[in-house]
Nucleic acid binder design. Structure first.
Lengths: 107, 107
DNA sequence: TAATAATATCAAGATATATTGATTTATTGA
DNA sequence: TCAATAAATCAATATATCTTGATATTATTA
């Protein structure tokens, strides 16, 4: 029950659904790119990433001071179905802004 | 997005997961039996049943003053997967008390 | 080792959701 | 039509979650 509710409550927020969809679409993303692309302040984004990670949807890889988030793999059946459902939602997905590539990451 | 979040937020409560599991296990149930079996006060139960119904998980059939709730059929893929997940949870499921059959429904 | 940059955490206030007891609505049968 | 019963809704309070700005942590590099 506990694990199921943790997955469900992680999904129960429009912001987090958007983050999942964005990372699912664009692949591994660092926090500063997500900030720039999604237009979210850092503490807010960081909080939601943590919730998604602890619910088993995301994994993090650190490279220096950067943190790269990606869809955890493999996902179990329910999480996988949830992600598939999110893939089918008609969402206005913001364009990817790759600050980390160009070195202008100063947020 | 709206519909997805409605499903998810309906699942995001231990009480409602228990109700879904109970009705899934015991079949169509009237509100007074659910009250007796689950030990919930009437307004609380009624609220949760409404949320589950409006999220597309349950349907109601009225017979006189009674209201019988059952799993809506067919369920779409995501709801169906969610229910399957709930079926696999190890939950202490209270025994069914059929007050409506014996006529002792006075709650 | 000190300064800087990226990310994480914390504290306070705002918003949403759950619980309870009281009231209302709807249906049945006298 | 009135009384009784099942179920739904309402209002108040309690609890949980989200947002923001400030602060802390961690890794890099000068």
């Amino acid at each position: 029950m506990e694990v199921f509710l943790k997955s469900v409550s992680a999904l129960n927020d429009e912001t987090r659904v958007l983050i999942l969809r964005f990372i699912d679409t664009n692949g591994e993303s660092c926090v500063c790119d997500l900030q720039a692309s999604l237009g979210m302040i850092q503490s807010r984004l960081s909080r939601h990433l943590k919730i998604l990670k602890e619910a088993g949807f995301l994994r993090v890889e650190r490279k220096g001071t950067w943190a790269y988030y990606s869809i955890r793999s493999p996902l179990d059946r329910f999480r996988s179905e949830a992600l598939e459902e999110i893939r089918c939602l008609s969402i206005e997905l913001p364009a990817l802004k790759k600050l980390s590539d160009t070195g202008e990451c100063k947020i």
